[in-house]
């Protein structure tokens, strides 16, 4: 059984693009890409699986447990980490605080501990700090640990977001356009980092991305979403030559003479 399985998930709401009969299965150590034109519903699928919206039909099973209908923080704590397309960092907090906060679900000192500064609290805060520093080193942003996130460059902020998602100790990681707005250098760096994470942590990764280069280099399989429906599925090179995909991106193919 796959680590994360989405079975026949559908969703209809308001004027937004519905998601129809969506299926997904990710194993440990698998990187899956999700591509599609703007407004196809890629981010909606992320929001449905992570519990921000509740799907009207279908089931989501993470590690053998159904997570449909749980509040987002419970879903996140059960092993599903994510980043956001429009980075959602906390403006007034330092990089290190971001990572510590993502360990919220593991706090066990309680309110009394927090008020009285018990040794349990201090020990756990230190423990969190060490783990956070390890992750920051992995993403090469450790020298900014005590900086406010707003002082970091764009690419660095993106990496902090990934580090924050990792601090929740995910089994499956969702990356929503991690390369958006990056310059080519930063992009190459990102590809290296995602590959390293994949090798060292053995996560299942679902990646939404517009930059085809990132998808082609990282993903073992790709799904193409058009108007809320998966129209093509396969290896990156298969997808690249699929007429339905070309049609969705470039319009219908002209008959050659």
């Amino acid at each position: 059984m796959a680590l994360l399985e989405v079975k026949r998930m559908s969703h209809h709401f308001g004027g937004l693009q519905p998601v129809l009969d969506y299926n997904l299965s990710i194993d440990r150590g698998q990187i899956l890409g999700l591509i599609g034109p703007n407004g196809a519903g890629k981010t909606t699928i992320f929001n449905l699986i992570t519990g921000i919206y509740r799907p009207s039909e279908g089931d989501v099973v993470l590690d053998g447990r159904s997570i449909v209908g749980l509040p987002p923080h419970r879903i996140a704590a059960s092993g599903l980490g994510r980043t956001f397309q429009e980075m959602r960092l906390w403006r007034h907090m330092t990089v290190l605080e971001h990572l510590k906060l993502a360990m919220y679900s593991r706090i066990d000192y309680g309110l009394a501990g927090a008020f009285l500064g018990t040794s349990r609290r201090n020990a756990q805060e230190r423990e969190f700090e060490e783990e956070a520093m390890g992750l920051l080193r992995m993403l090469a942003v450790d020298r900014h640990a005590s900086q406010l996130v707003t002082n970091l460059s764009y690419g660095e902020q993106r990496r902090v977001e990934i580090a924050r998602a990792l601090a929740t100790r995910p089994k499956v990681l969702f990356l929503d356009e991690p390369a958006a707005g990056m310059n080519p250098d930063e992009m190459v760096r990102l590809i290296e980092i995602v590959r390293k994470l994949h090798e060292e942590l053995g996560l299942g990764i679902l990646l939404i991305e517009h930059r085809l280069r990132v998808v082609m280099e990282l993903c073992q399989a790709v799904q193409t979403l058009v108007f809320g429906e998966v129209v093509a599925q396969g290896t990156p090179s298969e997808i690249q030559n699929d007429p339905k995909v070309i049609e969705a991106y470039l319009g219908e193919q002209r008959v050659e003479d």
């Binding site: 987002p72 923080h73 996140a76 956001f84 959602r88 906060l101 998602a165």
Partner: peptide
């Protein structure tokens, strides 16, 4: 600062 992000990072 950002409730959605907090929720996605396991904060109740």
């Amino acid at each position: 600062d950002n409730e959605t992000a907090a929720e996605a990072m396991t904060v109740d």
